[in-house]
Design a binder for these strands. Structure first.
Lengths: 351, 351
DNA sequence: GGGAACATTGCATCCGTATGCAAGCGACGA
DNA sequence: TCGTCGCTTGCATACGGATGCAATGTTCCC
């Protein structure tokens, strides 16, 4: 039992290094490095030999060391705050996959509202992320974002920050809000209302302004315009009750689907109104529950795949061309009409 | 305009290094490093002086270099796959905050089912993550997980992997499933059914076995036991319809809340049954929608905060004591009774 | 056959921080 | 007053790979 250690699962095995592998093979460390670097100057034979040996000896390059040398981390920092709205998990999931496709891992930064945000952004710089993708709707100061993103690829998804020239990719909120207003108008609803979520976010401002403007253009009356305060079911519920207690309205546009869901339940179950007969309801996003037969919610679909694709391509372009000027990229969405505005529309059979 | 560059936002400014800062201050680079390393040998005065200068000159240590030196990355890899169930985003968000509290950033690894999982786990080793937290319900082979976690702190959350001795933290599925069975029994329901999600996951097996066993112990009859195939609203909807077409059952336990929501809507709106009068419905997790008045779902609440806390503390312990033997940590949950099983229970007023 | 252009390979050094070791310094006790 | 001990500080080097440059070997053309 002289070599007892050999039999024990060895948690401490130091990973093989390029130098060691090189020594074992009688080649130089550079050769090993080149074997793993596409496009580097090495003969196909040697590369194959090294990759084969690497496979057998379970060598893989240490990404940390490589980051230090190249000053590229191959990491994208994703700044996130509200995971409650199911739209975001879906977005993040797809985004993270999209980034993996271009060899970027996703480092998540969960911003907690109220806590010291600057402090949380320090890590973005410390970890030397190549790209910063800001999804959080939470208000971030332009200065801190500028500082955090300084010199890196950066994309704001579904939001903008005043006075900060950064590339942004968003669903076309103006198009969406106008489409809803047009739809209400086409339905013959003329006494419409709007329910905001977080009032000061760029997303909300765009939707609200576009909706209100279009409503006026079409000669409809805006009966209520309330702020729910947050993007939650409960907030939508409260807002709907408040509206139901006031002057009669025949169509409500909620700033997103979750608000709309809470609102519909309140209208139907607490206010005793029929949706869509008494009041039509529309949301925004087209999250999964909008398709549920119970809600069957008319909504403006955010084209997640297109948003992800544009975000990823913008990141890669910025990485290739650091001087690329910022751009705004509104992505066209699609009005999805369902039962919550059109009684004749019957919920899809769920297959 | 000789120094035109000065006026332009300088995206390329190379970050200040410890050496440079040291040179500027006339101290050694070691001193700078020590100033940022708690517990290192340095006088309080010098440390203060350095930290002050660092603040003014906007220096912060390069985490990459530090990782290379210390062989600690301060990164936890979170392996995730299903973000559709709202339980997981919530869990991940809290977990990520919990980890930040102990100075660990979260690197997310989104496992795509079907694609090459091993390949995706390579990055866990390359990035040298200190800890691996596996939340994904997707089936992972023991061997690949072992390889990926080799020698690091690792925790399986809400799942186990057969034959793989790893620390796990889960809601006590047995307790939960028994509580539901007991509840059905107390309600006088004796013809019960079970709806599974992903049939081969450890979570499902535990819930299913415990439920079936308890049902038998209590002398109730198990009428249907079906597998929805995935944890989705649609799957729950389909499963419920299938059950409604078969022999009459008076209580259904769905393996999670999303399934239950789909199931309830199907029972009520497609099968024309009353919930809870004709059939009682219970779920598992207590996600947000379980509280919505429309569902008002009886469910077994997973104690997310306790799970997160235990996970984080287990990680820190493992980091301190690498030889720590694996442990199982079932966390006690709580039966939440609502309208879907007890007609008299009225939905909470939403404040 | 000689030389130039090219393809491969290795050498040496750098990336930015952490840390063992030894040197410097002041304080304290005998 | 001198030796010793403890606290600070700096020096030198390690962490693991990437890469410019020089050295070597090949190929091709005149």
């Amino acid at each position: 039992m002289n070599n007892a250690d050999d039999n024990i699962a060895s948690p401490r095995t130091k990973p093989l290094t390029a130098r060691e592998l090189a020594r074992l093979m009688g080649v130089s460390q550079s050769a090993v490095s080149r074997a793993f670097t596409p496009g580097s100057s090495i003969s196909p034979e040697l590369r194959q030999r090294i990759l084969k040996a690497a496979g057998e000896l379970d060598y893989q390059p240490n990404a940390i060391a490589s980051m230090l040398s190249t000053r590229r981390s191959n990491i994208a920092g994703i700044v996130v705050s509200e995971m409650q709205n199911p739209f975001y998990p879906t977005l993040i999931e797809k985004l993270s996959r999209g980034l993996q496709r271009v060899r970027l891992q996703s480092l998540m930064f969960n911003i907690t509202r109220g806590s010291n945000i600057e402090e949380q952004l320090v890590a973005l710089r410390q970890y030397n992320v190549d790209a910063v993708i800001i999804i959080s709707a939470t208000v971030l100061s332009g200065a801190s974002v500028q500082w955090a993103t300084d010199g890196r690829a950066a994309v704001l998804v579904n939001r903008t920050i005043p006075d900060l020239p950064l590339t942004s990719v968003s669903c076309d909120n103006v198009e969406g809000a106008r489409a809803i207003a047009d739809h209400f108008h086409a339905l013959g609803r003329h006494r419409v209302s709007y329910v905001a979520g977080l009032p000061h976010t760029s997303t909300n401002l765009e939707r609200q302004n576009a909706f209100v403007t279009r409503v006026a253009e079409l000669g409809m009356r805006l009966i209520h315009s309330v702020a729910a305060g947050e993007y939650s079911y409960e907030a939508g519920h409260r807002a709907a009750l408040e509206i139901a207690r006031g002057e009669k309205t025949d169509a409500i546009f909620f700033a997103n689907d979750i608000l709309a869901a809470g609102g519909m339940d309140a209208l139907r179950e607490s206010a005793g109104l029929r949706v869509p007969e008494d009041v039509a309801v529309a949301g925004f996003d087209d999250v999964a529950l909008a398709r549920w037969p119970h809600y069957s919610l008319t909504t403006f679909r955010q084209p997640i795949d297109a948003i992800v694709e544009k975000t990823v391509s913008s990141v890669t372009q910025q990485l290739e061309t650091p001087s690329l000027p910022p751009s705004r990229n509104p992505i066209s969405g699609e009005l999805i009409i369902r039962h919550s505005t059109v009684a004749e529309w019957l919920p899809e059979i769920i297959e």
